[in-house]
Design a protein around this nucleic acid. Structure first.
Lengths: 122, 122
DNA sequence: CTATCATTTCGTTAAATGCAGAAATAACAA
DNA sequence: TTGTTATTTCTGCATTTAACGAAATGATAG
């Protein structure tokens, strides 16, 4: 029962749900990406990601100074299926999708992550 | 997205989750049954049931002075499947199951609902 | 109609939660 | 080392929400 509770609590907040949906559509996001996406302070984003992480919904990986978050591999497929279809019905904010893609694009550009993972500057 | 939010909010509260799990195991419950089950005031229970109802998780039927709640018929089976298996893993409070059965038994006894739906007293 | 019972709505209080800024931590660059 | 950047933790404030009691509503019994 505890896992249902923590997962429901985690997804029962608009910003966290938006991040989770974004991660269903994107490989990975770091805290600052999510900060740009939601327009929230890093501290707030970090807390949200922590809650999603503790619920087992996302996984984290530290690379250099960045912490990258991605979908959890052990998330129940029925849960995902339900979310996917519900979002389909509701109409997932198309703006969100575009926004995330743009953020990821800029992130990759400035980081040159694609080549060797080396950073230049912000 | 709104439906995911409202459902997650509804299930993201311990008492409401307990009621929902109880309704997955029981045909129907009225507000006073749930009040006995959770040990909460009728007003509080009514509010919880309203939130579950608005999320589309349960349905209500008024019979006489009582309002009976039961599982929603349109609840996504994937959501139910996830909940069922998660509860199985977590171990659903066995006390809750017993408690509900006892409450339903007493309710039926005092109401004589089984025969003709006629009420005697409390 | 009046009385009673089940439920809902309203008003208030206490606890939980989201938020930002400041300080602390971690990892790299010079 | 020192400085810079990304993230986390801590502290305080504002909003939300769960809880109760009281009053209002709905329905039956007398």
């Amino acid at each position: 029962m505890e896992s249902i509770l923590s997962i429901s609590k985690a997804l029962g907040e608009k910003n966290r749900l938006r991040v989770f949906l974004a991660l269903m559509d994107t490989e990975e996001l770091c805290v600052c990406d999510v900060g740009d996406f939601l327009g929230l302070a890093p501290a707030t984003v970090s807390r949200h990601m922590s809650i999603l992480h503790q619920a087992g919904l996302i996984e984290s990986e530290k690379r250099g100074r960045w912490v990258y978050y991605r979908m959890g591999t052990a998330v129940d497929p029925r849960l995902l299926g339900w979310i996917r279809s519900s979002v389909g019905n509701d109409g997932f904010p198309a703006q969100d999708r575009e926004k995330i893609r743009e953020i990821v694009r800029l992130h990759r550009e400035s980081c040159l992550c694609d080549s060797g993972g080396r950073k230049t500057t912000v």
